[in-house]
Write a protein that binds this DNA or RNA. Sequence first.
DNA 1: CCAAAAAACTTGACTCGTTCAAGAAAAGGG
DNA 2: CCCTTTTCTTGAACGAGTCAAGTTTTTTGG
Lengths: 147, 147
Amino acid sequence: MDDTTDADYEHLLRGADLRVTRPRLAVLRAVRRQPHADTGSVLTAVRAEEPTVSHQAVYDVLGALTDAGLVRRIQPAGSVARYELRVGDNHHHVVCRSCGAVADVDCAVGHTPCLTASDSHGFVVDEAEVTYWGTCSDCTTRPSSPS
Amino acid sequence: MDDTTDADYEHLLRGADLRVTRPRLAVLRAVRRQPHADTGSVLTAVRAEEPTVSHQAVYDVLGALTDAGLVRRIQPAGSVARYELRVGDNHHHVVCRSCGAVADVDCAVGHTPCLTASDSHGFVVDEAEVTYWGTCSDCTTRPSSPS
DNA sequence: CCAAAAAACTTGACTCGTTCAAGAAAAGGG
DNA sequence: CCCTTTTCTTGAACGAGTCAAGTTTTTTGG
């Protein structure tokens, strides 16, 4: 399905004027394997392959990749920062109020749905982010039982 | 424009089965005066009227009022929690990427716009939150000049 | 109006995601 | 292969928010 290789990630990094390093490749692999992973999970996953990578390196890498537009950072209210590789396709997220699980949702309307705000108070708007809130199927089935 | 009195707030609180206390009234007044204020600002504003109120009380009160649906908590990525009195009218927010300023935006489509996600992966969705990202007029005029 | 029960508040310590700073190591151009 | 720049390691620090124990206030019922 997604057989992206390290060579592909190299091209991505170079195209963004970023040096190719082992920590960065490991972070990209980790985020691909676990979409919506938080920094801690990425750190754990990275260290499974590269045991010497520091937590600060992961913060730096995720920041650099986010600035370069190679990964997307989301942060639903009440959650820590989470990262994903799907970028530039205007998709949104459903978040479970009870367990915090996140899933992707393709935009209902198709393209830049509610993008044009009626009155944006002088703001120059460049993105509309939609977050759906609800309860995931696990939490619906098994009410009030923390993971 | 908004001449809500303490008596009105009393009714609101009692209607939500919450006791009427000086800290709660002070918090409601503070949030009315400064929509989108963060907890720290609310604390400062409250202490101008009630100097002995603890920071924990403000956290408790804002939590209780949020649970009761009397105030709404928003938390754009990269920001601390902010609170507002406008509740239950399905409005959204524009957030300035550079200075973090927040303004209200009435829903472009009118009512529950993108609410129906195309495929919600088994989630039971009860709310669609829209956040517009951009640059406020101040930051457009005066580029890269921190407040 | 007073007392008892429940809810709310004060105080102070603490957690944890994230950032800051200084120096060491690695990447890439010449 | 060396030099410059970027990136990474190490370790301390910051700050929003939470936890816990004990006191005060609100409310209800006598």
